[in-house]
Amino acid sequence: MTLSGVHVPLITPFDADGRVALDALRRLADDVLDEGAAGLVALGTTGEPGSLTEAERRAVVDLVAGVCRERGVPLTVGASTAEALVALDPSQVTAALATVPPFVRPGEAGVVAHFAHLAALSPVPLIVYNIPYRTGQHLSVGALRDLAAVPGVAGVKHAVGGIDADTVALLADPPADFAVLGGDDLVISPLLAMGAHGGILASANVVTAGFADLVDAWHADPARARALANALAPLSDALFAAPNPTVVKGVLHALGRIPTPAVRLPLLPAAPETVRAALAALDRLPAPVAG
């Protein structure tokens, strides 16, 4: 299994009473698939899983799994512990997005051993979420290749905050049957130009078609891809001007796509001026990019 294309890490919308707005989540899931998403991600960081109850997490996964089953697309679910992984239903879930252990900084050998342990018990393949500016643990290209060799590890969501030497080395000679999916929206275009298979992109909640077109264009028309990237980058920059997914939710609410812009603590809603700046960036997109 090699995942490719744009996979949308869905936000979790809340209604005016603070409950998960499942009807709105269903509409959003259908909308992003209609606009060209290759798959969906439930309970990623963008979905605020840490602030959901266990019952709410189950309801979100069940709903999104139903959409994916109906539409014939893969579902990835955020699950980073043995307990969360063994609870996944492989008839519903294609892959699990598992974060490099945060805070403890176990070293690269510890990270590889950790994922070998998780992969051995997981009922679905793992995508390693490599995000060192949150976890505190850098992974060299050697460690990434060691992870790619672990049975049951299918790829990496690569979000290192830019294009570093290890990223260059990884994509210069990518491991076979190992998906490299960009996770930093602002630099997804150079990653794709270097050979990344796709991305897991929060910005694609807002303008899915533009990012789906970007992936396709890097395979077929690099000049068009550069133009698309230049148009999309200011929007991604604006959507991440406050903690994710606060601005994304503010924009989706302003567009009438979710009932409220509410987030749960420890997040606070994005400031109105931050949302207005993102909406202005969206308005500046050329029509084909905006979808």
Rank of each mutant, 00 (worst) to 15 (best):
M1D: 09
K157R: 08
P234M: 10
A21D: 15
V61W: 02
F178G: 03
D34W: 12
T76N: 02
I200S: 01
V141Q: 10
A96C: 06
R276W: 10
D34R: 11
V187Y: 07
T81F: 11
T12R: 00
V32T: 07
P234K: 09
V100A: 05
G198M: 12
G199D: 04
T76K: 05
L147T: 07
L235H: 03
V207W: 11
R26V: 02
L139F: 01
I188Y: 12
A290I: 01
V206E: 02
S4C: 05
R257G: 04
A238I: 13
L121Y: 09
A202P: 08
V60N: 05
A65Y: 02
R105E: 11
G47K: 04
D177T: 12
W218S: 00
L147W: 09
H138S: 15
A149M: 06
K249Y: 02
A238S: 08
V150I: 11
E48C: 06
A55I: 00
G155V: 06
D237I: 15
P266D: 07
R257Y: 09
L43W: 10
R264M: 05
P49N: 05
A238N: 00
N230L: 15
A119Y: 11
T260K: 01
D89K: 09
V124E: 12
S236W: 12
F103D: 03
V32S: 07
P90F: 13
E48S: 03
P190R: 07
D34I: 10
L33P: 02
G198N: 10
V41I: 08
S203T: 15
D30N: 14
T260A: 01
S189M: 03
L43V: 05
A98Q: 04
M1A: 13
A113E: 15
P106R: 00
L75C: 02
D177E: 15
Y133W: 15
A193K: 12
G136D: 03
I188P: 05
P269L: 06
P102L: 04
V215Y: 08
V77C: 06
D173G: 13
W218K: 08
N230G: 13
S140N: 00
V60W: 10
V60I: 11
R105P: 13
E70T: 13
S4D: 14
P245R: 13
V64H: 11
L255S: 03
F178S: 10
H117I: 02
